[in-house]
């Protein structure tokens, strides 16, 4: 039944469906690179999705919608950062409370926008490029949100690993005390990148309600994405490109799930949604094992095992989750 055309359309679907997850994973990667865990992802995606839809509907402007989504995302992330950095409360606690609170706030405030038709991003195939066989369909037949998500992968990588500001960002995440002694202010850097990461998370929410799953409702369809993005950041070893690859893998599994459901009709689609989480635990386990001397000795003359361990040898930013104290 499947032929060439079907595969390119399938891959195009994977790339389009993954766009919000890529945005959220990139945002969280940036925040965690600075040493801060923003656990509020799931709720803040929903709240920004709601805000973006409501604003776009009221003003008739999609740009205003995306902008308000980004602002909401940045505000929630900055709240986590502020509580952690300046009020010295547990990041995990604040992030967790916020994820529950913002989700409920989204449902509450969005009640009157439920199941209302609204504006959505229109497709924008790129002329000429879209006519390239196969690749044209896969990469250049989308809308602006998807192109943005593709460009941001490269931009984040370049920014984090190839610029002076990115070096400072990583320094703060690895060792804030050392960064401080080199004249960098960890508190300001963490606040800044929490907000930047939050911005991307907010854009992820906005692209849900204005593009991937247009409209608002309870449930919206974006539920659980935040947790998936958190899992993908770990799976990607805190590397933006690997994280994006993880997002595409997940999107691929989801698309595959639709096909698989035809083969196993008794398994509900939601079960396939679970896949990232065992993978996340497995990744963390392998990362821990890869650091152990005994495991490395054991894998020494097994080429395949060595490759697996090398792939998973990414480590978390040194100061991740540990708030910087300037005493």
């Amino acid at each position: 039944m499947t032929n060439e055309i079907d595969i390119s359309i399938l891959l195009a679907g994977v790339i389009a469906g993954a766009a919000p997850i890529v945005l959220a994973s990139l945002g969280e990667t940036v925040t965690e690179k600075a040493g801060l865990i923003n656990l509020s992802l799931d709720g803040s995606i929903l709240l920004s999705a709601m805000a973006a839809f409501a604003v776009a509907l009221e003003t008739g402007s999609l740009i205003a919608g995306f902008f308000s989504g980004a602002v909401i995302g940045a505000t929630v992330a900055a709240t986590v950062a502020f509580f952690s950095i300046y009020l010295r409360q547990s990041q995990v606690a604040v992030g967790f409370v916020l994820t529950l609170m913002t989700r409920d706030l989204a449902y509450f405030l969005g009640n009157s926008y439920s199941r209302v038709p609204g504006p959505q991003v229109s497709p924008l195939p790129i002329p000429l490029l879209k006519d390239i066989p196969f690749f044209g369909t896969v990469f250049f037949s989308h809308n602006l949100t998807v192109y943005t998500s593709l460009l941001l992968i490269a931009f984040c990588w370049w920014y984090i690993y190839r610029t002076r500001a990115g070096l400072e960002l990583r320094a703060v995440g690895e060792h804030p005390e050392a960064a401080y002694s080199r004249g960098i202010s960890p508190k300001k850097i963490q606040m800044l990148y929490a907000a930047c990461g939050g911005c991307l998370v907010g854009l992820a929410g906005a692209s849900f309600s204005l593009c991937t799953k247009p409209g608002w409702g309870r449930p919206q369809g974006a539920e659980g994405t935040g947790w998936i993005a958190l899992a993908i950041v770990i799976f990607g070893g805190w590397h933006p490109v690997k994280a994006a690859a993880g997002a595409y893998l997940f999107s691929f599994l989801q698309v595959l799930g639709i096909y698989l459901q035809g083969i196993f009709p008794s398994v509900p689609a939601q079960v396939f949604q679970v896949a990232p989480f065992p993978l996340m635990i497995f990744t963390l386990l392998l990362m821990y094992l890869a650091q152990k001397e005994s495991v490395r000795m054991w894998a020494e003359n097994k080429v395949w095992m060595k490759a697996v361990l090398k792939f998973f040898s990414g480590t978390a930013p040194g100061a991740l989750g540990r708030a910087y104290r300037q005493d």
Binding site: W227, L230, A231, I234, P278, M280, I281, L284, Y288
Partner: peptide, 14 residues
């Protein structure tokens, strides 16, 4: 396994 209980717990919830 050195897996943080928050991530392990979240994963196991799903």
């Amino acid at each position: 396994g050195g897996v943080n209980e928050i991530f392990a717990g979240l994963g196991m919830n799903f």
